[in-house]
Computed example of a mutant assay.
Amino acid sequence: MAPLPVLDDAFIPELPNRYKGKVRENYDLPNGNRIIIATDRISAFDRILACIPFKGAVLTQTARYWFEETADICPNHVVSYPHPNVVIGTTLKILPVEIVVRGYLAGTTSTSILTKYRNGEREMYGVILPDGMRDNQRLDQPLITPTSKEFDGGHDEPLSPQQILEQGLLTKEQWDTVSRYALALFKRGQELSAKNGLILADTKYEFGTDKDGNIVLADEIHTPDSSRFWIADSYEAAFAEGKRPKSFDKDFIRGWVNERCDPYKDPIPKIPEDLVLQTSDVYLQAYRMITGRSFERDTRADPLTSIREALRPYFS
Rank of each mutant, 00 (worst) to 15 (best):
R288D: 13
S227A: 11
M289C: 11
A310Y: 13
Y181N: 04
T109R: 15
D9N: 13
L92T: 09
L143P: 15
E69Q: 11
D9M: 05
E68S: 06
E98Y: 03
F239H: 10
R122N: 09
R102M: 04
V216G: 09
K265T: 11
V87T: 14
A63R: 09
M289W: 12
A194G: 05
F295G: 02
G21P: 14
Y181D: 02
P75N: 12
L169K: 10
T108S: 05
I307K: 08
S112T: 10
I307M: 07
V79T: 02
T299I: 14
P313M: 02
T70K: 04
M133S: 11
D72I: 00
G132P: 07
A194K: 08
R297E: 06
G21E: 14
Q61V: 04
I221C: 08
S226T: 02
I164H: 03
N119Y: 15
E25H: 15
D210Q: 01
I164V: 00
K265L: 06
R254L: 11
V127Q: 09
G103L: 02
D135P: 15
P272F: 12
R122H: 13
M124T: 00
A63E: 07
L59S: 09
K250A: 05
G120W: 12
L169T: 09
F186D: 05
R228Y: 13
P53W: 09
I164A: 00
V178E: 02
H83V: 00
A237K: 15
Q285H: 13
I164C: 00
E98H: 03
L105E: 06
I268Y: 12
V78Q: 06
I164P: 00
I36W: 15
T90V: 10
A286D: 00
